[in-house]
Design a protein around this nucleic acid. Structure first.
Lengths: 343, 343
DNA sequence: TCCCATGATGTAAACCTTTACATGGATCGT
DNA sequence: ACGATCCATGTAAAGGTTTACATCATGGGA
């Protein structure tokens, strides 16, 4: 029971008085073994406390039971909950997950590519829009892979995320419904493909509301708090201010809120603000931030499930799975201030 | 280069015109192989793009190059940054990290115990005060293990964290310096050992300031936002209110702040509040929360470094490594209100 | 000049599993 | 009653690596 080294299949075979082949079959293909034998084997397993040595198994099978999850930044507040979904689903399939952290350093990415090349992982989950393997990204032969949270540029890799267009549409529709027409979009068309889609949702909403393109205010940021504040400063230097700020993500929105607060404005009475993502901070801002929630755990679960579909070789059903985003109404949105209403 | 299956050590040997043993030596013990040979081998490696198959290596060596990190809740805001430190340090040693998520479910813990028993992980990092392996925890033979973030009850497992006593002392000293004497401690003596230590720091600080034990106000919570609010309500039902709330962690402090806000009080003018941990929300509260920072990335790095010391069999130098906590002064603390000063 | 120590390399076993193939007994149909 | 078929099980090879041991050449000391 508590011997010095873990029991092997041979120990089980000896006790059950069968061959190791039979033990292996009793475990993995029980229907191929007689009932009485299976019973003996199971008892022997219980006695020895046998667990199959995953390394030997992987070596023999030529594939491991690990899924590599690569993210540029593990510390990203969006990451941890997706990880929960990924882990749960993986474990349900008997797989473990391995964490890779590239910090956008191609050198580090390359090390994970080696990992993959030596068959250490059966599949790959990518938390980044660009393959993180530097110049080898083009030629790299990858195991079955799924992008999560944002589409992967390099093509051919299925993706699970939120419907960004619909989410943005929900935000803009709320603002329209409150009576806003001059809605600034503080976006980021460069770093993430998902962000361009949010812009599309914004445009679609204003199209539907009949706000001509000429009246739209578009600013470029890079999705950080600082860039939100900067974009705000730019706006104040122009003559036309919007009544509402629709931000490409919560970080940007937080920057805008900080900037407005510093200038002495009141949210939502002077200006309305919306974000996107529903990061944990969003509910702790003053006022709390109205935003679009990413169903993070569900995204992770769904992405991992898709990966297992790919692994089992059944044709992938969908190349893109978009989950429904939820509008989370809090306190950063109200009707436009009088200044705008009398216009 | 881009052949159908990954190159093996045999491919390298053939090209370098040496035996596979020599290749293995050239890689792992280069000093045992002639310079000229080493050169040939390295060239062959470059040509084939060989990466050593970690599964075969692990099988042969009887130990893997993976470290299992088990946490009850991966989503914990404290977790992700520690993970960054853990991952960086592990990778520097050529190890990968594997994530285990127990959700306090012994059944799940048991599955990870199997993992360990089948030698799938060379070491274990525990993010929880109790071994998560259910009733088998007592007898489980574990690989070298290190507790992180909070001490592991079951003993014998070294621990890396912050100096909770010193951290709490810094918070209480700040409050004393501001002129507070009636300082309530909202604690949690049950769920985490670390929390009891914070209580010790509180007592030590008040001892030093000459505040008699009889004047101290101690409440029990469980470290959640809700429990902070509840504790506050209890206090308001008594006749003596403190001038400051020292909370065992940020979550509790946030609960207290919300409760005080709901009752119409102003922080810090009416009451001062301190937290512990410096979770991301702390800086976004209104007012921002004065707290004690856990150097999370450093803790992770240090814990993993200690684990490698254990792995390399050199006697563990320290059974407990305590990092220095930093006082982060923000806006939730000021001198006591006049009500208390005129006492 | 011969022997031995030394250093470099090769041979082969071992790590633990899975599975193609072989074996042997039982069952069934004729 | 005999051959064919099927089912349960065993035998052995293979997967890629590391390393103890064997081998062989080289050079130095006597």
């Amino acid at each position: 029971m508590s011997t010095s080294s873990p029991a092997t299949i041979e120990d089980v075979a000896r006790i059950a008085q069968v061959s190791i082949a039979t033990v292996s079959r009793a475990i993995h293909t029980p229907e191929k073994v007689a009932n009485s034998t299976r019973l003996k084997v199971n008892q022997a397993i219980a006695i020895t406390g046998y667990t199959t040595n995953a390394m030997a198994r992987s070596l023999r099978l030529g594939r491991s039971n690990m899924i590599l999850v690569v993210a540029p930044d593990i510390g990203d507040p969006n990451f941890s909950n997706i990880l929960v979904g990924l882990e749960n689903e993986a474990r349900a399939h008997g797989y473990g997950i391995l964490i890779g952290h590239t910090q956008n350093d191609p050198q580090r990415g390359l090390e994970y590519l080696k990992f993959l090349n030596s068959n250490q992982a059966a599949g790959l989950i990518l938390f980044t829009g660009i393959l993180p393997f530097g110049h080898q990204s083009m030629t790299a032969r990858l195991p079955p892979s799924v992008g999560v949270f944002e589409p992967v540029y390099n093509g051919g890799i299925p993706y699970v995320g939120v419907d960004d267009i619909e989410g943005a549409r929900k935000a803009v529709d709320l603002l329209i419904a409150e009576g806003h027409r001059k809605i600034a979009f503080i976006g980021d068309s460069r770093t993430r493909l998902a962000y361009s889609r949010r812009r599309q949702g914004y445009d679609a909403g204003l199209d539907a509301a009949g706000v001509p393109a000429g009246e739209r205010i578009i600013l470029e940021g890079d999705g950080t708090i600082e860039s939100g504040r900067l974009a705000l400063e730019q706006l104040f230097m122009r003559d036309t201010l919007p009544s509402a700020f629709m931000c490409v993500n919560d970080q940007t929105a937080i920057g805008v809120m900080i900037g407005l607060g510093a200038r002495g404005y009141d949210i939502p009475n002077d200006f309305s603000v919306t974000g996107f993502d529903d990061v944990p901070q969003a509910s702790f801002m003053t006022p709390s931030l109205t935003t679009i929630r990413q169903p993070r755990t569900a995204i992770g679960k769904s992405a991992m499930a898709l990966l297992f579909e790919l692994l089992s070789d059944s044709e992938p059903t969908d190349t893109e799975i978009l989950l429904r985003p939820d509008l989370i109404v809090r306190n950063s949105v109200s009707a436009p201030s009088r200044r705008f209403q009398k216009r």
